[in-house]
Every structure is written in structure tokens, then in C-alpha cells.
Amino acid sequence: MSLPPLEIVLYAGAVSLLIIGLAGLVMSEHLVRLVLALGVAEAGGNLLLVLTGFRQGAVAPILLGAAPSGPMVDPIPQALVLTAIVIGVGVQALALALVLRVRRAYGTVHMSALRARLVEDLDEAAGLPPEGSREAPGVERPV
């Protein structure tokens, strides 16, 4: 049995992070866990970007002394990811602030309860009687 090359292992790790993060984004019930899943997916995407510049046997794109010893990895994806990580923190903080705000406005941070409340609000804004959404909460209402 031959082992997969190193790049394939790393690529599989990046893809599985991305998949786990996306699955968490779709499936998570709690809003904070949704933010966490977003961070995981973002980490996978960053790793994927950095891997495009990687090759085995290359050294980091930083010159020590005069001449580079051997090939170097591609610095451009690294520069892109550098900014992406810092932006990711800003996005995470803003998302958490919005979660706090949602909690203040609706009193809950659970997706299902929040969805029910939003449907109620939409019904109220549309002038529909509120009984419908309470009796059949799973039914899609015309928005």
C-alpha cells in the first residue's frame, strides 16, 4: 500500500475543514456555534489558498543572507491569506456583536425559535392573522 503524497494529505485536511465548517453553518442550531463553524470553514479556505503555493523541498520566501538556497514557495497566496485572516477576526467580532444584538432584540439565539419569531413578525407586518403560524409552524407562508 503506497502512501498518498504529502500534498494530498494536506489538501484533504483543508477540504475536510471546509466541509465540516459548511456543514456546521447549515446544521447548527445555536448562533454562536454558527459563528464558530464560520471560523472553521474560513480556516479551511485559508489553508487551501496557502497550499496552492506549496511545493516540497522549497524554503520560506524570506531571504536570509544574500542568495536563496534552493527554490522558494510562492509568496502571493501567503500575502492574500495574511490579510484574509485579519479580516476574518473583524468579521467574527462583528458577527458576535450582531448575535448579541439579536439576543437583545428577540431574547433568543436559537435558530428555530428565531425563525418562528421572524415568521410571526412577518405575518404581523403583512396583516395576516397570527393563528396560522402557531397552528402549523412548519408550513411556509407566502411572504
Binding site: 497550499l51 514557495v73 485572516i85 467574527q92
Partner: peptide, 22 residues
């Protein structure tokens, strides 16, 4: 994968910042 800059950013963000904010 020989990306010390990115590793350092991830270390600073993941070890200190993101955890504190969360």
C-alpha cells in the same frame, strides 16, 4: 508548508484574539 508569516498571524489571532472575543 513553509508559510511563517501566515503561521504567525494565525497564532496571534487564534491564540490570543479570537478566543478572547468569543
Amino acid at each position: 508548508v513553509r508559510a511563517p508569516d501566515v503561521a504567525m498571524t494565525e497564532a496571534a489571532v487564534g491564540a490570543g484574539l479570537s478566543g478572547v472575543i468569543l
